[in-house]
Design a protein around this nucleic acid. Structure first.
Lengths: 103, 103
DNA sequence: CGTGTAAGGAATTCTGACACG
DNA sequence: CGTGTAAGGAATTCTGACACG
């Protein structure tokens, strides 16, 4: 049931390419992670790995920063979004439970 | 008219992740390039960049090698395929030319 | 032929810190 | 607060070569 992740979400790029792809400095990229706006994975020895989704996410963040939005605000929005997703996930779980009981 | 390239064909991964993703040693990956079976791009200072398509291509190559096919044979097949593609491209070009003349 | 490995150098990435406004 | 930069170390990648079967 939806497992793939496919290419878009695979964390495979190092910070250098991400910097190139987004036009953001590595400093900025690392800082947005520090502020919990983005979540790269790490290789065994600690180098960051990003996905194409992360690239898109970074562009959004950059746009907001440019509009004067503070990282704190961006983070708040993100948290809200995650809570919505969390609720939806629970509801879906319950619907599935109902459905399975019928069989 | 078909420009995107999207994620699958973007050359963004370094050889380390490619090795991880394919299970092939870096030595093998570089060797297959030497034999002209795969074509990574290069960054300004020379490090190789691969796409997800390259990952798939490498898996195919690995399968053939495992079946005892020599790189020379694999290369021959690739060349044939490229010539077919080339012919098709030309034919399509001529059809378009015809079409445009009518307007 | 296909692949491993040691070698030396160059480029990359990481963290913590100081700086500025 | 958001970002630049110099600092030192660790990990990555590159090439050309020798080795083996």
């Amino acid at each position: 049931m939806s497992v793939d992740k496919s290419y878009k979400d695979k964390k495979v790029m190092s910070i250098g390419i991400i910097s190139e792809l987004t036009g953001l400095s590595e400093r900025k990229i690392r800082y947005y992670e520090e502020r919990k706006l983005i979540f790269p994975e790490r290789t065994g020895k600690g180098t960051r790995k990003y996905s194409f989704s992360d690239v898109e996410r970074l562009m959004e963040i950059a746009d907001q920063i440019e509009d004067g939005v503070q990282t704190y605000e961006i983070k708040k929005e993100l948290t809200k979004k995650q809570q919505r997703d969390e609720r939806n996930k629970m509801i879906r779980g319950q619907i599935n439970a109902q459905f399975n009981m019928r069989n």
